[in-house]
Write a protein that binds this DNA or RNA. Sequence first.
DNA 1: CTGAAAGCGCTTACAG
DNA 2: CTGAAAGCGCTTACAG
Lengths: 355, 355
Amino acid sequence: MVDGKEKKNFGIKDIARLANVSIATVDRVLNNRKDVSDATRQKIKDIIKEYNYQPNLYARSLSVKNNLNFAVLIPKTSLETGYWQLCLDGIEKGIKELEPFGIQTTVFLYDQEDVRTFVKVSEQILHGNFNAVVIAPIFIKETEDFVRQCHKRKLQTIYINSDIPSKSTLGYIGPDLNSTGRLAGNLTSYLVNPGAKILILNVAKGLENYKYLDTKIEGYKEYLHHLDRQFEIDIADIPYNVYEEVERELLRKMKTGSPDVLFVTNSRVSVVGQFFYEHPEITKPYLIGFDFLEANVNYLTKGVVDFLICQRPDKQGYLALNYLYRFFLLKEDGVNFKPMPIDIITIENYMFYEN
Amino acid sequence: MVDGKEKKNFGIKDIARLANVSIATVDRVLNNRKDVSDATRQKIKDIIKEYNYQPNLYARSLSVKNNLNFAVLIPKTSLETGYWQLCLDGIEKGIKELEPFGIQTTVFLYDQEDVRTFVKVSEQILHGNFNAVVIAPIFIKETEDFVRQCHKRKLQTIYINSDIPSKSTLGYIGPDLNSTGRLAGNLTSYLVNPGAKILILNVAKGLENYKYLDTKIEGYKEYLHHLDRQFEIDIADIPYNVYEEVERELLRKMKTGSPDVLFVTNSRVSVVGQFFYEHPEITKPYLIGFDFLEANVNYLTKGVVDFLICQRPDKQGYLALNYLYRFFLLKEDGVNFKPMPIDIITIENYMFYEN
DNA sequence: CTGAAAGCGCTTACAG
DNA sequence: CTGAAAGCGCTTACAG
């Protein structure tokens, strides 16, 4: 090495030299440990400030023998709700990034149609040796019980995807559901004339977290009512997993005066898309729905779905792990509420989404 | 440390032990250096595969004495085009992340209204000791000259924000301009009836990179013509920096039959917003423009601007630095073309954008 | 073709 | 209250 004159980063050694102490003492000051006299502490702090010292996080990570274990508790993907796969993708990306820091993350999946599976895996987590758990709540009461147990055992918790009343220790990362509904209302308002017929389709009967869609619907209605344009708003509840039921309901609705806009409150918009694709004789209303799932994008490209509102489920999971990392390793504070961006996807920008 | 049983990461030492060689030899294989017999090389490769060895990038970064110097060459922010500040924000974020890796990045700003400033700083870069330069091209010819000089000196180049015909070595990260225009056309199509009057406002006369807006306009017209709905499309070129000119032109246009949609081809939509805000007596058409600038968002919240199409300028700069890091440190390949997401922002989702 | 040793910037017992 | 030394997982001259 004869590069000689190259500037090294200003590091802990330099501080020690300038302060006439050992690096161990500098380390004590940096990490706010005790056992340092006020005089030396102040001297070192001054030097840190003067030279604008920035710790090398990679060196820190390399030397610290962290033993962190994180758990992730989310629903498993089903055919009907490919949504959770996206969430898992982001989580897996996060897991890979944390591995080099010596952080082990274990994913636990539960069946969102079977509360017993939730209880079962949540107990596994309690008996495992975890420092924190990322939770996507579906079963409100059981999640509350679980979180209470976690806190007893000093297990940090953080919610993603949907918030519930009883608080986690580190907050919530996910969409603001009311705003999500309002945005759908906003888009709707550009599509129709005063007095238009609007049909809200809740293709969610049978899903446990069904209730949380109400917040979206409220936001939607609230926005439209506020415009005061005499819209005729109707709502239909349909089982989430039976195409025939959707078909029957839609055929019925279409007979009694076709709506101008169909607002599907969740990712099941592809089923509605399928209906209009298979019934080309029926004039298609504008169609708005949620989530960047393959089936949904498929009907978007066919021109059947007009707008998809998306909330980056992958980013939620990724960010949650990232926050845990920062909380434990960088000692930063928790989040409390991190609203995700709400994206509008059409046939002309879907191809650039999320890369 | 008496944690004893905790699993260490499987590392270079373990490979060395299993292969009965020294860690130096393992390193040679890992980094594809020569001076290793085929037999040992194969043995080591097998072990790497079998145990799915993942190098600790932070250890690597810590040990490697990299001497990388990057340059960034972008326009400086002006009152009229706060856009470049956003770009700079992302670049500064990237710079901070690269610092712990011992990478020094220097930002050079030029005046997009004065080509001499571009020539001047680009020469500084050539005489500095840089390994790569991130360029936001405005002056086509001068950029081409500069890039040619860079390549002579083995300086890697990468474009952001807008692409130009003569190639950089590492590609382009930015929006696809034609698609951006098409998306605006797509939104327009939802707002109007057949035969509607549409006015394209090119508030860019006097800007050097004026021409590149043509690509957007082409995409816009192309999309609308394709719909075959007898739209009446008009276009107006207006100086980019004089409100009075915008006012005069708009007053004139409004007299000869008010358009239904105004499409402003760049970030100057706030000036048009200002016009309608100051002329409440005039019926406002739908208003579509570009970029998440404070002034634009301001008129979005006032309900004057309807849609802002945004291309994450901060992310471009950040990604460009990230790619350089990966190219030099992780030895990954270049990009060639990385289209940015194209976002649609309205009064109901702007508050969650980009956090 | 191969290995022993030093070093990257930090943290962590341990000894005083 | 303080410091010397070992170690995190890699890379890099240097010696053979």
